[in-house]
Simulated scan of single mutants.
Amino acid sequence: MKLFVVLLVCAFAISSSFASDPSPLQDICVAIKEPKDAVFVNGKFCKNPNLTVADDFFFQGLNVPRNTDNKVGSFITGVDVNLISGLNTLGVSVARVDFAPYGVNPPHLHPHSSEILMCMEGELYVGFVLSNVLGNRFITKVLKPGDLFVFPLGMIHFQLNIGKTPAVAFASFGSQNPGFITVGNAVFGANPPIDPEVLIKAFQLDKKTVDYLQSQLWYNNHN
């Protein structure tokens, strides 16, 4: 039993050390604009906790549908530390994802956090791809209202509205700033562009195809 307790404590210690955001050492740390000539900190600088107000922890408007009339047919309203300053050091954030009929949230990844997605309206075809070590196995599911799906940290994933009506989902993250890297935008829309020879060899494409992809306007559906 003692050995079991020791192992359990070690397991919790190890899991905590791999958390996306470090644990705070104070009750609250409402973010403020960086002071002039400030040194970098992992997070944002803090307001005096005695000066915090309710609005530091408040955001309004996630009930409002967003405009999905764009190239991908989706729009993400992320609510992170940049919109709620009171999220600083708390290690959480959320997002609303609106989909037009057959709209897609293109393949992307979050470098700082795993994600839990809840389908609220419509039907979503979702999935993620495991790492090279695990054979790039594809994990997928169709979600209906009330269904949840988890996307592990750093895994490329997507969501597609497979219905004829708009769809809505809400996402929760274990980071105040989960990050957002859309694969197509990063690879073919890099600024300045990646040398085409790299993409030709890496993706086994001909130069004409690479030139075409690099010439496209890669839309950013994230606010």
Rank of each mutant, 00 (worst) to 15 (best):
F59R: 11
Q214C: 02
L148E: 08
K71C: 02
L25I: 11
K44L: 09
K33R: 12
L143K: 08
Y212S: 14
R137G: 05
L87D: 08
M155F: 13
P49I: 11
D37I: 09
H222S: 05
T77W: 07
G127C: 01
V150S: 07
D195N: 15
K2C: 09
V81I: 12
Y102N: 15
G103C: 02
S16G: 09
A171F: 00
N50A: 15
K141Y: 07
L217S: 13
L7Q: 01
T209A: 12
V198S: 06
E121S: 09
H157L: 08
K33Q: 15
H110V: 03
M155G: 01
L117P: 00
L213T: 11
D27H: 10
L3M: 09
S93V: 06
V133T: 13
F57L: 12
N67K: 10
A19L: 15
S85K: 15
I32C: 11
P152L: 06
D27I: 07
Q214F: 03
L83Q: 14
L109G: 00
A190C: 03
K144I: 03
A95N: 05
S93H: 11
L25A: 05
N82W: 10
K33C: 01
D56N: 14
L205S: 00
I162S: 02
I76N: 07
K141T: 06
S15W: 06
F128A: 03
T182E: 14
V150I: 12
I200C: 02
V79A: 04
R96P: 02
I84P: 01
D98V: 04
I200S: 02
F99I: 04
I32M: 12
A54K: 14
V30A: 10
G103D: 07
G122R: 01
P196A: 06
L90K: 15
Y125H: 13
A171H: 01
P107F: 09
G179H: 06
G184N: 10
F180M: 03
Q60Y: 12
K201P: 00
S17D: 07
N223Q: 10
